[in-house]
Design a protein around this nucleic acid. Sequence first.
DNA 1: GAATTAATTGAACGTACGTTTTATTAATGT
DNA 2: ACATTAATAAAACGTACGTTCAATTAATTC
Lengths: 213, 213
Amino acid sequence: MARTTGSDGERTEAAIREAAVDLIARHGYEAVSMRQLAARVGVQPAALYRYFPTKEELLFILMREHMEALLSAWSDARPATDDATTRLAAFVENHIAFHIARRAQTHISNMELRSLSPERLTFILKLRGAYEKELRAMLREGAESGAFDLDDIGLTAMAIIQMITGVIVWFRPDERLSVEGVTRTYLSMTMRLVGASTNRETHHVHAGTRLRA
Amino acid sequence: MARTTGSDGERTEAAIREAAVDLIARHGYEAVSMRQLAARVGVQPAALYRYFPTKEELLFILMREHMEALLSAWSDARPATDDATTRLAAFVENHIAFHIARRAQTHISNMELRSLSPERLTFILKLRGAYEKELRAMLREGAESGAFDLDDIGLTAMAIIQMITGVIVWFRPDERLSVEGVTRTYLSMTMRLVGASTNRETHHVHAGTRLRA
DNA sequence: GAATTAATTGAACGTACGTTTTATTAATGT
DNA sequence: ACATTAATAAAACGTACGTTCAATTAATTC
């Protein structure tokens, strides 16, 4: 046998990507073999190499596209206003929506970094860094304008990222928890974290633990 | 060759554990071979099987001991008082100290769950569940007593866990960031998250001039 | 000092891996 | 229709994997 009837390069490549995302997110990059992947796609292992030169390149491409899509989504969602609170809220909402919609890809981008070659790792980390920088810039602006009250920009940024990315670890939308409800709660928690002054929560007094030396 | 001079079962087993924790945390369970592990220990691959029947059992033992040590550490650190704020503070402090001290084991317990058989996975998840239940109980008590003000106990618990466990992902103690300083900041952020009220009158103060990058 | 137990080696088993090569068929362009 | 290109299959390459087994030596016991 050779070329099969109805075969189409574009469709096959898309099918490989899709199957790879699902399998790698589920079992891990190292645990998924090219034979497994080919079987899922319904093709012989050799056919994969028409579309992706190596297994690692396939992983890298999936990661790169996910990170670029994340940055692009934020670029689109980013509000025009300079108001730090509005911008931070948009950031959190976009982040949660994006990560819930692409749970598998996010899992891969977070878990499989160590399977990348040094150069590819650096590339992905640069994209990640650019994204986190956006958050830090917001926090700094809010702190300087007085909209936020926080101890440490870097630590707060990491805390927020960990918190809102962690949603995908446990969240499955059901009748009890909706995407909107979860987003609302996480938005509220984020605002507390940065010490945002809102009209609704002025009666709260935050913990007195303050800056260290 | 056979038994080597000075060989000692206890020491060899400890060396295997130690090497396994380091290698698996660094490269991932699937990526580490028994041959690699044996080479690191300075022994032939077959020798490993005197101490651990299979590779997966070795992973399971490392995870189980880590989780049991975590529960045990909390059991020791848990304050006698019923005060929710005091107890939550102790929880966060213990959690961060434990996870920084055992970064590699934590990494393994968080990342390699999918390499466990269903029964072993269930076992580990039960231990983890017991730990998280402690946190939820604290939050519930604090919410009922009025010490805390929060929207959703389950979501807040997950947010806190993600946030304080995330420390090990990026934190390396250096001259700029000490364990104590990071712990203090995370403690403060946790108290904000749960809407803790303090008896000390703390008014809204801008952190502007004291901000760190 | 002989017998027993503990610790390890060396070699091998069967299997699976990522990848390459070559041949073959389907679709496309002329 | 025919030549060309696109898409795949089939088979094989060398390598590495987890694990087992028998043999061998060191330490311990009596």
